[in-house]
Amino acid sequence: MPFPNVRLANRPLHFIYICDCSGSMEAQGKIQALNQAIRQSLPGMAEVARQNPEARVLVRAVGFADRAAWHLEQPTEVQQLQWLDLQAGGITAMGEALELVAAALQSPPMEERALPPVLVLISDGQPTDDFDAGLAALMRQPWAQKAVRLAIAMGHDADTEVLQQFIGNDPGGGLPAGEIPGASGQRPLHRSGRSPRRPLQASNATSLAQYIQWASTAVVGAASMPASRMAGSGPQANIPLPDLPPTLMDPTDDVGPLVW
């Protein structure tokens, strides 16, 4: 009894970097650090993709400065990805960037069977355009609502409030996704103040690289084979997020100089 002529397929996992390329990113080598961090993370991401053949990891990138534009528009398999450096200069059209991503998350072109996408917003400043409109446009898309949304604040001038709005509320105040606040009576897995459901504070090139590496490997690994979870358990991440990496320059550790 031959197998029917149907298309069995692994599930696409769209990973989208949304990168601040404003003029302030030029200062203190931030844009170079970002380019370097992304470039260095690619082999690890490719290895995770290789270990999870049921997911097809496809990378895209948006840069925003005076305007937002696709830096890497075509969803590209991570194994084939050659990272071209982002260039800094201009203001911070973050809202427009979210609108670009919103358009890409419409169905179609998004596939019926895609895995929840991973969106990583990286910024060192404050939006200079209509961020609320951009976020509203994004969150109208069901795929954006299902997405794993992470944000990295580069330096302490970053507007963590808008980054938190992008991620969504963190009612658990640092509890891990899937853990019901107060239900277990157990110690949270994440220390207070450090949660993937809050903007990740990168204070120097090392911590930025660690967060990018974490997003592109641990998060991609978790998103590649997501365990289902019960509905109605609160506005938590759409996939249980892995623990954050220990960072040498973790602000909650209160050690070391703040480079940015």
Binding site: P116, P142, Q145, K146, P226, A227, S228, R229, M230, A231, G232, S233, N238, I239
Partner: peptide
């Protein structure tokens, strides 16, 4: 229904309701 399950979330016997 999408209103019950979203993303990888799904209705579950472990829910109180």
């Amino acid at each position: 229904e999408a209103s019950v399950g979203s993303g990888e979330a799904t209705g579950s016997l472990c829910l109180e309701q």
